[in-house]
């Protein structure tokens, strides 16, 4: 089974976070997650997650530490495969295709989903090679120089590094490194960009730049961001999923989804008391 290339289709959905209410939307979702649970060995990290990710939107996952938001994000591009003991139940459909189906190649999945990590993790190589690596391993045929320039431009980094592409990426500042990682993530022309607390290691100014960049990028990409920063979720996201963690008597912690709605609703008029408590800083 191969995953149909969704890129031409995504243009059908123009930016639209208008009036729809609730967790289901009329448009065909990019991800359709149904009753997802992830277990590491005997430890159940998250349970019963059901939500959908809409195209050309920013969806934010918020919640206290240990609530499983990163775990869920890492199911989207099958990064959890790297952890041997991880097992996934329920279904994640990507444009209708079950990502955990028996014949799915995780490498192909990841080529359609760029990922940006908590700490900037550029390769200890040149700026150019950082961007070019993804396209190269994907067998890119066209002009790599143009692609590198385009990716860096879209990541709002070109002006700062255009003269020093051969210099080591590690010489850049933290904020620049993270934008480089974003450029690296979009260089393979993915459909989705997954961001795992992309600003947690950055100062406020660098954070602001990344947020502006995200708003710019959502015209072309579907973005899912995990964040500890509620203001960030409120500022950039169209829809927000609030996760929490249930601590059982034996000290077992399992994450679950409490509420998923338009960001405006979550932050002004949440249905659940625990969401409101978290948003207003009463716990978490």
């Amino acid at each position: 089974m191969t995953i149909p290339d969704p890129r031409p289709e995504t243009r059908r959905f123009e930016v639209g976070h208008s009036a729809s209410i609730g967790a289901s939307k009329s448009a065909e979702p990019v991800f359709d997650i149904d009753d997802l649970s992830v277990t590491y060995g005997d430890f159940r990290a998250v349970e019963g997650i059901t939500l959908d990710i809409q195209p050309s939107e920013i969806t934010a996952f918020i919640g206290p530490s240990g609530c499983g938001k990163t775990t869920v994000l890492r199911c989207f591009n099958r990064m959890n495969d790297l952890i041997e003991s991880a097992s996934v139940e329920g279904s994640i459909r990507y444009h209708g295709v079950n990502l955990y189906g028996p014949r799915i190649d995780p490498v192909e999945v990841r080529r359609r989903m760029g990922m940006v990590f908590q700490k900037p993790n550029p390769f200890p190589k040149s700026i150019y090679d950082n961007i070019a690596f993804g396209p190269r391993v994907a067998g890119h045929k066209g002009n790599l120089d143009d692609l590198v320039e385009e990716s860096l431009t879209r990541a709002a980094l070109w002006d700062e590094v255009s003269g020093k592409l051969a210099e080591p990426a590690l010489a850049l500042s933290g904020g620049q490194q993270q934008r480089l990682c974003i450029a690296r993530a979009i260089a393979t022309s993915p459909d989705v960009v997954l961001m795992d607390e992309p600003c947690s290691a950055l100062d406020p100014i660098a954070t602001l730049k990344i947020e502006e960049l995200m708003l710019e990028l959502k015209k072309d990409y579907t973005i899912v961001i995990v964040t500890h920063n509620m203001q960030q979720a409120a500022r950039v996201s169209d829809r927000t999923a609030f996760f929490t963690v249930d601590v059982r008597a034996e000290g077992v912690r399992t994450g679950r989804l409490v509420e998923f709605d338009d960001t405006g609703v979550i932050f002004t008029n949440p249905r659940e008391q625990s969401t409101e408590d978290y948003i207003t800083g009463r716990f978490g």
Partner: peptide, 27 residues
């Protein structure tokens, strides 16, 4: 070799061999 490097390479769609060959072994 920091696991963040492996994740970075795997994350852009490199196969395990490409990750080892281009990133893990040089480091």
């Amino acid at each position: 070799v920091p696991s963040s490097i492996r994740e970075g390479a795997i994350g852009v769609g490199a196969t395990p061999w490409q990750t080892i060959r281009h990133h893990v072994l040089p480091i």
